[in-house]
Design a protein around this nucleic acid. Structure first.
Ligand code: FES
Ligand code: FES
Lengths: 143, 143
DNA sequence: GTGCTTATATGATCTATGTCATGTTTTTTT
DNA sequence: AAAAAAACATGACATAGATCATATAAGCAC
């Protein structure tokens, strides 16, 4: 689709962590089970996010992944940038080099609207913002 | 992005053929050169379209690919369906099974609105419709 | 009809992505 | 100090997608 599978997993996992009490740590197995994601793979993805300081982790017994207040307030788009890079939002939908309004492809306007809309949504919404919607059962992170 | 590379190639190639005079045949090498696409690969993609009766072809000397009047009037979305299937427009952007407004993911609304938009654009526009825009230099099929 | 030019068919190879598996390090518990 | 539990690190494997290559069949020109 728009994002790589790794990125989809990353987004779902961080939104999942956002639901927890502040500083409550969740083990990888629990996250993977709840989200229906292969644990080892998700582990790898989360490590990347830890390195990028978008997610925190604690080793040892009772350790796990969690989000700090600071991390909760970062926009969701940071996750996308960390995993898929910034180019996703600027690639031509027909694969032509240098997507731009100067030399648009026939689908440019429609594609750009789509891309921009998602980009804006992810930029304006913090990781924490999904909390209430998920909590109230309006939206879901897993089937 | 949204479509597979094969599908991107397919869309560009058919729009390219739409520019030709009716029933003018173009060889695969010419198309590939003009669009900067590996010839053998594009060849394979076009064969699929020929099988699906979205593009016509003629063998032998002075043979090549071309579009009939009938084919020119078909909507562009047929190309997408032939190569990527119908699911592209119904897959959840976060990879959750069964994208639906009943059980939406946090990005569903942002994704669906504009995904539908692209789908509608491709459904309402015939293959031939790109002609004038391309011809007048408003839009481009290659860098 | 012979030879050339073209699409067609099929499969091999390469590449990126996703998945699995193993071992190491850190921290807590006892 | 020892043991256990967890993240961390690394690499092997699998799969799908994209690319390349070869051989076959069909049509045109002469
Ligand atoms: S040029 Fe194709 S999407 Fe912008
Ligand atoms: S449920 Fe995720 S895009 Fe529809």
């Amino acid at each position: 689709m728009l994002f790589s599978k790794s990125c989809e997993y990353a987004l779902r996992a961080t939104m999942y962590l956002a639901q927890m009490e502040s500083n409550e740590k969740v083990g990888i197995k629990v996250i993977a089970r709840d989200l229906n994601i292969p644990a080892d793979y998700l582990n790898k993805v989360l490590q990347t996010l830890v390195q990028q300081q978008l997610v925190s982790s604690a080793k040892g017994r009772n350790g796990g992944f969690y989000l700090t207040k600071n991390e909760l307030n970062k926009p969701l788009i940071n996750i996308v940038h960390a995993i898929d890079g910034k180019e996703v939002f600027y690639r031509c939908g027909l694969g032509i080099k240098n997507c731009s309004s100067k030399k648009p492809c026939p689908l440019h306007n429609d594609i750009k609207a789509y891309r921009d809309n998602i980009k804006i949504a992810l930029s304006n919404n913090s990781i924490a913002s999904s909390r209430s919607q998920i909590d109230s059962g309006e939206v879901f992170l897993s089937k």
